[in-house]
Design a protein around this nucleic acid. Sequence first.
DNA 1: TGTACATCAGTGAACGCGCGTTCACTGATGTAC
DNA 2: TGTACATCAGTGAACGCGCGTTCACTGATGTAC
Lengths: 208, 208
Amino acid sequence: MKSKPPVSTPAEGRRPYHHGALREALIDATEQLLAEQGLEGFSLREVARRAGVSPAAPMHHFGDARGLLTAVAVRAFEELASRLEAADAASDGRRRDRLRRQGLAYVRFALERPGLYDLMFRAAKLDWETAELQVAGHRAFWTMAGLFAKPAPPGDMTRPPAAVVVWSLVHGFSRLALDGQLGPLEDSTFDALFQISVGDVLDAIGQD
Amino acid sequence: MKSKPPVSTPAEGRRPYHHGALREALIDATEQLLAEQGLEGFSLREVARRAGVSPAAPMHHFGDARGLLTAVAVRAFEELASRLEAADAASDGRRRDRLRRQGLAYVRFALERPGLYDLMFRAAKLDWETAELQVAGHRAFWTMAGLFAKPAPPGDMTRPPAAVVVWSLVHGFSRLALDGQLGPLEDSTFDALFQISVGDVLDAIGQD
DNA sequence: TGTACATCAGTGAACGCGCGTTCACTGATGTAC
DNA sequence: TGTACATCAGTGAACGCGCGTTCACTGATGTAC
């Protein structure tokens, strides 16, 4: 069990010089790290360690730490958008129901992925010039905002007032919950609190 | 101009060994630093530098960096509470007007003091066991929440649903604006955006 | 009023840390002919 | 089918940084008698 020959053994036991799928592996490792330690726990070196690669390796794929985090945020916005779309598809088709379901899905996403959610709105850690990020953020935003207005093209920062209200509600609720301002996380199910507070207001806003 | 005697000159030009009001000076320096560089720019050492004192000096007054930040947050919550109270006092006395004015005052505070506002909700940087912080936070919260329910005692995390909605709205709006999600800061006056979006919903909620 | 002494509020050097990034390099891959 | 060579994707050591905190210390203050 102890005597693996220290050199070669050509096709087995030798980790290859090239990783093969390092880019994806680094993004996965970052997501995992954020899930475990939160955004404050992130470091490029730790991610490299988890991917089993030297600290300089990530640079080849992302340029710098912000580049990696931006790629992670793109995925996160895409997942958020997908969840909102799925919630919408599960609705009865009336705006009121579509809105309430999307609102709940939004809050659940934030509470289930606190590290990712922090990242998505920490502007200094991201490069919002990146086209993919703009597209993914745009898609998520307009999944909800589309209930109130025709989507603006990506890159356009137009924010219909009704969408600002709805986004403020769900984002504010999520942030307050995540930051511990709505009581200890372990005690309460925020779903219930959401339903009797923000959810009811969404109902009113969603009325045709 | 060049020949100040290098030693003594008893009562003048000698900075005294004891500062006299270091505690306040450190809090002031921190507020200034947060205003200039934001929360990410904060460091204990930089604050000590600005107060003209050795890096270890703050420990005597605050124990550690969190202690200092907590003291700063106490002041910040007090200022927020004062502004909400002032807005309330300027109202016509009807709940609808009281709520809308408080909401606007809240958002203005957040946008005028971004570094402080970040700090107030970054739980990891603060010690929420500190009684003064609980009291100050409680006072600010219940200035708004008092429009909907009888205040709970400090330390109690009860959050009336209507207050959760209102707080989510103004906090969410503030955060989105600060994080650049409502468009570039330099272009727009957020007051106007607030009035036609969140403000109108507050009106509806404040209706008796 | 004077004096001893405990206590308080500072100093400044040092510790130990982990970080992002740079650098010169090397091993592997893929492409042109 | 083989071979030269450019390019790509890694290594691992090192750089330089600023940080929060600790430590042994000292100067100033205030209190007891």
